[in-house]
Simulated assay, not measured.
Amino acid sequence: MAETYVSGAAGRYATALFELARDANAVDAVKADLDRFSAMIAESDDLRRLVRSPVFASEAQERAIAALLEKAGITGLSANFFKTVAANRRLFTVEAIMRDFALLVAAYKGEVTAEVTVAQPLSDSHAATLKQALDALTGKDVKLAVEVDPSLLGGLKVKVGSKLIDASLKTKLNSIRTAMKEVR
Rank of each mutant, 00 (worst) to 15 (best):
F81C: 11
H126F: 02
V160L: 13
A10I: 05
A128P: 04
L164T: 14
A179G: 11
F56D: 00
D33E: 04
R99M: 10
T138R: 03
V183F: 13
A64G: 01
E182P: 04
L47E: 05
R48Y: 09
L169E: 09
G110L: 06
A64V: 09
V55R: 08
L77D: 08
D166T: 13
A67V: 08
G139Q: 10
T113K: 07
E182M: 13
M98H: 11
E62G: 08
A64M: 09
D33A: 03
L122S: 01
Y108E: 15
L34M: 11
K157V: 15
L17P: 04
G154S: 12
T75R: 14
K31Y: 06
K181G: 04
T84V: 13
F101P: 06
T129D: 13
K71A: 12
K83R: 15
G154T: 03
D100H: 11
L130A: 00
V51W: 00
A29V: 07
A14M: 00
K157T: 15
L77F: 09
L156D: 10
K172F: 10
K170N: 11
Q61R: 15
A10M: 05
V142K: 08
V94K: 07
F101I: 02
F56I: 06
D33W: 02
M1Y: 13
S151Q: 12
G8H: 01
N80R: 15
M98S: 14
A145I: 11
D45S: 11
A102H: 12
E147S: 15
V30F: 05
K71M: 08
T178R: 15
R12V: 07
R99Q: 13
P54Q: 00
D23K: 00
M40V: 06
A133G: 03
E111H: 09
S58R: 15
D23P: 04
S151R: 09
I165T: 15
T84N: 14
I65A: 02
V85Y: 04
R63E: 12
L173A: 03
D124L: 02
R89G: 05
V27W: 03
E115V: 09
N25F: 05
A72N: 10
A96I: 09
S78Y: 03
S44K: 01
R22A: 00
E115C: 00
G76D: 05
N88W: 07
V183G: 10
S162R: 14
R184Y: 11
L130V: 09
Y13K: 03
A16G: 06
G11A: 08
T75A: 14
G155T: 07
A14G: 03
A14T: 00
F101S: 07
V148I: 12
V160K: 13
L169G: 08
G73S: 10
D33H: 06
D23Y: 00
D35L: 01
V148F: 09
A86P: 10
D35G: 10
E115N: 12
L173V: 05
F82I: 00
L34D: 02
A133M: 07
V116I: 05
F18Q: 00
T117V: 11
A96Y: 11
V55Y: 11
G110C: 03
L34Y: 09
E182Q: 14
A145L: 13
A96V: 04
L77Y: 08
F101H: 01
D28M: 01
